[in-house]
Design a protein around this nucleic acid. Structure first.
Lengths: 192, 192
DNA sequence: CCTACCGATCGGTAGG
DNA sequence: CCTACCGATCGGTAGG
């Protein structure tokens, strides 16, 4: 007995991610969420402990995913240009497998309470340091032009972020084609 | 008599933009806003009509600003590469002159009620059509590689969007230097 | 998993 | 510009 419980929690988590993405954390009420999974608001608390807890799980699940991904890339790939390409594909792969949750992760983390807020920001900083290192090494090795690593990093990260809001699986272009275009744009630029 | 009223409303609007940026529209209460301008919540309503109205003014002020800007660029500049460069500088100029309001414009417009929500989305569409036209013409004239105009547009728009969150006037780099780096990155790419 | 309900807070109004 | 207050809604609990 008591085996479907985890899947019910999963359903709640996914409905919450969708609502957080569409309306934001603050504008989503527990009654909205309850309605989405056909429960009374009070019944949600048999599966989750609080609204904050849902946000925490979404944010840290994705943060760990990205951090583990970039650490693997840094270990496996040697060439900075290849690392950068793998990084872009990592973002796109995560985006397509878990698009709703990642938008909450991107936009709603600021509603985390302390101390989780600081913990989250630290995970993000660790990720960004890896990212900057890749660019620094690309410059040092002469593969990249002498650019500001911060500007390049934020330009790439934000262009990938947009894909989550914008990409719809029904579209003709596969996500790989979009990835290749972004990689080409960043590496080779727009001009002939 | 009654002359300082407009400046008091301005103070409220600016405080609201800052709060909307930092906490989001829904998580900002009228009591928060009142405290920021040293009033009682009820006294706000001598200067503004509703919380929605504040959001409306912020969103449409910026939307009109961008639309007018791109229409002027399209008329004045001939070369697509120059138009693109002028467009990037437009975004950065708006960002530095009105950084807080623009973040609300970017992130909080979804909390607009109807029919303003649809009106806003239409303004945005008109802006994006101009943007795509510039890229299309650049490709047709042979100035740009054969890229997906949508991907290029969103990559550029989102990389500029990030600057608002990230740029602090105290920093060493001037906004023009950042702009030049982004223009160079988009036009020439990262690789040697 | 539900009914019934809690104290707190919300956007906004009445009236001066 | 304030005091006093409205009905609605919030996240969450008690108890079964």
């Amino acid at each position: 007995m008591a085996t479907v419980d985890t899947s019910k929690k999963q359903m709640i988590m996914e409905a919450a991610a969708k609502l957080f993405r569409d309306r934001g954390y603050s504008a989503t009420s527990m009654r909205d969420l309850a309605k989405a999974v056909h429960l009374q608001a009070s019944s949600l608390y048999n599966h989750i402990n609080s609204k904050q807890e849902i946000l925490k799980e979404i944010c840290f699940h994705n943060a760990r995913h990205f951090l583990a991904g970039i650490e693997q890339i840094v270990q496996e790939q040697q060439d900075p240009a290849e690392q950068l390409q793998a990084l872009i594909l990592l973002h796109l792969r995560v985006a397509t497998s878990d698009a709703t949750s990642i938008t909450s992760f991107n936009d709603e983390w600021r509603h985390l309470d302390q101390p989780e807020l600081d913990q989250f920001i630290n995970l993000r900083k660790r990720y960004e340091e890896h990212f900057r290192n890749i660019i620094d090494q690309g410059i040092a090795a002469g593969h990249f032009r002498k650019v500001d690593p911060n500007i390049v990093m934020y330009t790439i990260l934000s262009s990938l972020r947009w894909v989550y809001d914008w990409y719809r699986p029904e579209r003709a272009d596969s996500i790989d084609e979009i990835g290749e275009e972004i990689v080409a744009l960043v590496l080779n630029g727009l001009q002939h």
